[in-house]
Design a protein around this nucleic acid. Structure first.
Lengths: 342, 342
DNA sequence: CAACGTCATGGTAGCGCTACCATCCATCTC
DNA sequence: GAGATGGATGGTAGCGCTACCATGACGTTG
């Protein structure tokens, strides 16, 4: 009697069409596609033929509704233009490109509020897993993550209290190692130059401070920071500020490589000898640091690996194989180069 | 008789719960949320109260299934680490952050095949719009875009035959303008140095060639390219290759700023005077080019603006307001700096 | 004032898929 | 050889929402 609603979907074949063509039940088609091992080889072949002939593609929305689980990885990063996160993302994408998971990417702009909003958007969709940058979620974000009902991986850092899993390294140790290296190299009045000053930068600063204090070299006037987003241009400006404030500066541990590059260019421009008069160290070890003249000492961070491993851990957790150790510290490596070779 | 399946969703409130609490029909709740103007103010208030009290969030999967339309923007870029696309993405995200659209990002790795695969993944989901980088889709990709049933914006370039809409600029003109500037500045043996050599790089090369030929200066040995992905390190290597091949080189028009930076560093290292002995021009005008020493001439491209406008056009099309002119050329600007100031 | 819009609201029937349970048949056990 | 077991297959009933159409209460109009 009631005629079916005209196909909303513009006539795409459905699982029922495939079932009819293959002469089996719809549920068997569904199984053949999702758990081929549970369908006899004969039927599997028949069904595959029907799928190919019709060009059937399952509707992910219907799937998600029926199974209360979307084949989506939610990924939250604080910035898209910061190449550090770009590399993490690349790792995530490379690890997921062979699977049928889609990736939904959110940009928190380093804002806890925006992170909450995005988690609120991601949650109702029932993602298969969530990957979020950082370990300093607001209480609300934390609860949203805990109640998301899927594996959660916090990346970039390690810490004592994971929501679920963590992959990263210690920014404190990285900052400390870089600073200790400069002290060993003979620098004394080493400045800390930092932009953005997100939680990870703060911890690098803390590492710097610990190393300086241990050597009896710390002086608050050596620290130059700004909440303004990082850039090479800003690095140049901050370096000039630092030098103006403290003309006897003989080293600069820069928050990140952009800042370090800005400092290096300013040294060229002002004819300050690097590493002789001033030593420079960056953080992250972007490609360009090795090529720069002089090449710039930096802390190599395992960004791509963090992306890869976070996905591997999430996939394992989805498959029910929780890792022995939920927090993985991938470490870092100090790359000593010309810019601190006094 | 048949007891309802235990709530798969883990007890999240549904639209029926809200309707019951507000004492209205489910459909009225649905309307109140999507088209508030069509519900009386009284009911709207009542419904809003129930929504707030229950913490109701609509299930996007159910929504997508029922309306045959997901609130998702599909975005396809060839690279995540290339900061050019990062800026485009930033524009896209910034323009969409106030809306309820989610963003699904695909990385094609500069591969037509991968682009086809991703479109095949995106399609069945019925995205609200698709934004794809480039205008050189394979025939299969093109058909997938044409039959996607949603607005499509091709970005980064302009061309004669849009699938639907286009936002970009002419890479040919950009390459031509940069080369003409170097010729005017007095350079004669100007090399083209390019990595990756995707279609846009090819068109910049064509622009370079046109300018050089017009001036009677073209020589095939001036062109040094590689399909290898671009990096500062590679830029240094290519520049050395170019110089070895053609020791009388007096200028380098670099495919992009990474390559230009690598060339600049190599000049420092080899004590080649810039701009006196060799002039250097980049492409895209990343932040660092202005700060570099010497500052580097580059072609400023409207990356962020491309992202913003592509979303604006897509949203307008979704709202039924197709633009007068489906192809928008945002132009570029040649930034003359020290590196070509002979 | 009867006929006719117009507007707010609601009921019903799916959207395309999968969870759950039933059924069937071949194989195994004692 | 009757009953138990297990694997393959299928039917039914939703998942949570919205398209479509129906309804009823108001004006509006000639």
């Amino acid at each position: 009697m009631t005629k079916p609603r005209s196909r909303r979907g513009g006539g795409r074949p459905t699982i029922a069409d495939v079932a009819r063509k293959a002469g089996v039940g719809a549920i068997t088609v569904s199984r053949a596609l999702r758990e081929p091992g549970r369908v006899s080889e004969d039927l599997r072949r028949q069904i595959q033929a029907a799928v190919d002939e019709l060009g059937y593609l399952p509707d992910p929305n219907a799937r998600a509704l029926a199974s209360a689980r979307a084949e989506v990885f939610g990924v939250l990063v604080p910035s898209l233009t910061n190449s550090v996160f770009a590399e993490v993302l690349r790792g995530i994408y490379d690890s997921l490109s062979d699977s049928s998971y889609r990736i939904q990417l959110g940009n928190t702009h380093y804002s806890g509020l925006e992170e909450e909003r995005l988690l609120q958007v991601f949650g109702p969709q029932r993602p298969a897993a969530l990957i979020v940058a950082g370990i300093d979620q607001t209480p609300i974000s934390r609860r949203l993550l805990e109640t998301a009902g899927c594996p959660v991986v916090q990346v970039m850092e390690t810490g004592p209290d994971p929501v679920d899993m963590m992959v990263g390294f210690s920014h404190f140790d990285g900052g400390k190692a870089a600073t200790e290296h400069m002290i060993e190299a003979g620098y004394r009045r080493i400045g800390f130059i930092g932009a953005r000053m997100d939680p990870r930068s703060q911890r690098r600063l803390a590492g710097y401070r610990a190393a300086m204090e241990a050597a009896g070299l710390f002086d608050a006037r050596l620290v130059t920071t700004t909440p303004v987003p990082s850039s090479v241009t800003l690095g140049r400006g901050l370096f000039r500020d630092a030098l103006a404030k403290m003309p006897t500066l003989d080293g600069a541990f820069c928050n990140n490589d952009d800042i370090a590059l800005g400092a290096l260019f300013e040294c060229h421009r002002a004819s300050i000898a690097v590493p002789k008069t001033i030593g420079i160290t960056g953080f992250n070890d972007l490609d360009m640091m090795e090529v720069a003249f002089p090449s710039v000492t930096s802390v190599r961070t395992p960004r791509y690996e963090i992306g890869r491993l976070s996905v591997a851990m999430a996939l394992a957790a989805i498959a029910g194989k929780r890792p022995q150790e939920p927090v993985v510290d991938l470490g870092f490596e100090l790359k000593r180069r010309e810019s601190t070779a006094r």
